[in-house]
Simulated assay, not measured.
Amino acid sequence: MKSVFVSSIAEFLSQANIEASPAWELINGRAIQKPMPTLFHSRLQRNLVNYINLHSESLEAVQEWRCIVPPLSPVPDISVVLRSRLPEEDGPLNGSPDWLIEIRSPDQSTLDLQNKILHCLKNGTQLAWLIDITRQQIWVWQGDDLPNIFSGADILPSLEEIPALSVNEVMAMTGRN
């Protein structure tokens, strides 16, 4: 992963390459390019977004959508936002998603992902999942609570009317659908 120091969020957002694939994030004063997703990561991301959008009238799930949460500019793997908060014009989400979902890539630091999640939780995110495909676990944060680690048949918390999923059901979304 590439990393470059920048002095401010304004400087970061003015750079031409931040929307290149994979996207760049501003985390703790460093512009960091996200890792290229793997096949299983991409499938899981697509299938979770489709599942959430199929089962909700009040929420919308979006892949790789830039958020502005000063002094950070994260690009969660999946941002789930109340439709009433969606902007009228195209562009980043000003604020934290209501539900943030990250899928850990093998070369990503769990600590860096957790720091991004904690920052968003302090700034309005109600629920966060950190999915570790390799370990078949999902770390879940709600409000100010410490994270809980779910695995196997454990049922995961979700927002609004989204039907509950088990960790096994989420991990199965890495398969071909």
Rank of each mutant, 00 (worst) to 15 (best):
A20L: 00
N28S: 03
L159H: 09
I117M: 15
E102P: 12
A23D: 01
S21E: 00
E57Y: 02
Q126P: 05
Q45V: 02
D98K: 06
D112Q: 05
E64M: 05
I68H: 02
D154V: 11
L121F: 04
Q126Y: 02
L100E: 02
G29S: 04
W139N: 07
C120W: 10
L48E: 08
S151N: 03
R176T: 14
G95V: 02
W99V: 05
N168C: 05
F12G: 02
V49H: 07
V167F: 02
V81T: 12
M173I: 06
V80P: 14
S42Q: 15
C67W: 01
I162G: 15
N17F: 09
Q126M: 13
T134K: 12
V167G: 03
E160N: 11
S166M: 06
L26F: 04
F40S: 15
S8C: 03
R176K: 12
S96Y: 02
P37G: 07
N148H: 09
A153M: 05
A20G: 00
I138S: 05
S7V: 02
E88R: 12
P97S: 08
S14E: 12
W65S: 05
A153Y: 04
V81L: 11
I78F: 13
E88P: 04
S8K: 03
R43G: 06
V49W: 01
S58N: 15
N148D: 10
Q108F: 01
P157N: 06
A31F: 07
I117E: 13
I162D: 15
E25G: 03
L93S: 08
E60L: 10
W139C: 01
W129T: 08
D145Y: 04
I101S: 08
V81A: 04
L121K: 06
P106C: 12
T38A: 12
W24L: 07
P22V: 00
L113S: 07
S109L: 02
L113W: 02
N168Q: 10
M36R: 13
M171D: 04
L26N: 03
K122Y: 06
T134V: 13
F12E: 03
M1G: 09
P74Y: 10
L118D: 06
D144H: 10
R135L: 11
I133G: 07
W139D: 13
Q45N: 12
I117C: 14
M1P: 08
A128S: 09
F150V: 11
F5V: 01
G95A: 04
S3Y: 03
E19A: 08
D154G: 01
A23Q: 13
L159P: 06
V75D: 08
I131P: 04
Q45D: 08
M1W: 07
G152Q: 13
I138Y: 02
N94R: 14
E89T: 14
L130V: 09
L26M: 07
P163I: 11
G175T: 11
P76T: 11
